[in-house]
Design a protein around this nucleic acid. Structure first.
Length: 255
DNA sequence: AACTGTACCAACCGCGAAAGA
DNA sequence: ATCTTTCGCGGTTGGTACAGT
């Protein structure tokens, strides 16, 4: 939304993420987890650095991200925690289910800081976010977009499916040496995608419909992905069929 | 209608910590 | 113990949209 897309010297894209990139990343991480951010873009068919992918996932694509409209309680929490923790945004965000550190940080700098300066001791809720202002309206529009459900054509990890199979020894080693977060443990074959998601549901409840999971549940670093990572990394072959609700989520990205 | 100012927030960058070799 | 790689965090930038002039 913000930065003009461009390429750095190594050919990696920078700047605003396109819906297509979002789709690829979301589909890939949903399917395989974030076993290694550095390698991930290669397999997901993204011309992005791993860091950028991670950021995009953590701040935008991750399930159960809560966007916009901070409640009085949330704002109070932010101010209270900021008072005691300082600029430790990740720690503050950890106390706000569904909020990301980036978003909390932004909200602080754009809204709460000023308000806090004006009346440091008063509760923030006083005139909390003015939802009638232009930004509030924009955000409401965006949320409406995100919540809008409409049918979407089948989604495929296009480039990642056809080309970058982990063929080279380097790629294979990257996969096999990292045993922490492959969300694929129960996958018997690549074509058995429904089994994957059924397994997901059995183990963790409905992936997409669960109102909220602890952040770490989906996160990579400290993640406790509901699958046990097993030896084999699934080959990226064949057409993917996504479970009910998947397209609905993706549709929010204005595809 | 055109220009300017402001608010917002997605995304980049750099650094330090943690983990692994 | 040291070096390398990867990840996560916090600071900052800059594009977009809208309001005001």
């Amino acid at each position: 939304m913000v930065r003009t897309p461009c390429c750095d010297k190594s050919g990696l894209r920078k700047g605003t993420w396109t819906p297509e990139e979002d789709r690829k990343l979301m589909a890939y991480v949903t399917r395989y987890g974030c076993w290694n951010w550095r390698q991930l873009p290669k397999y997901a068919g993204l011309a992005r650095c791993g860091k950028s992918c991670r950021l995009r996932w953590m701040n935008y694509l991750r399930p159960n991200i809560k966007r916009g409209n901070y409640s009085k309680e949330e704002e109070d929490t932010i101010i209270r925690l900021h008072d005691s923790l300082g600029n430790r945004w990740s720690a503050i965000a950890a106390q706000l289910p569904g909020r990301t550190d980036n978003e909390v940080k932004n909200h602080w700098h754009t809204t709460l800081k000023k308000r806090f300066k004006q009346k440091p001791s008063s509760s923030t809720s006083e005139g909390g976010k003015d939802l009638t202002n232009k930004r509030g309206m924009i955000r409401e529009k965006e949320e409406t977009k995100l919540n809008n459900i409409s049918p979407d054509p089948p989604l495929i990890l296009e480039s990642s499916l056809s080309s970058p199979q982990p063929a080279s020894s380097d790629q294979n080693s990257a996969i096999s040496t990292d045993n922490n977060t492959v969300v694929s443990g129960k996958l018997d074959s690549v074509s058995d995608d429904n089994a994957l998601f059924e397994a997901y549901e059995v183990d963790s409840g409905s992936f997409w419909t669960e109102p909220f999971f602890p952040d770490s549940y989906y996160m990579c670093g400290d993640m406790s992905v509901p699958f046990e990572a097993e030896a084999e990394f699934p080959l990226l072959n064949g057409e993917i069929t996504y479970p009910f609700g998947f397209y609905d989520q993706l549709d929010g990205f204005n595809l």
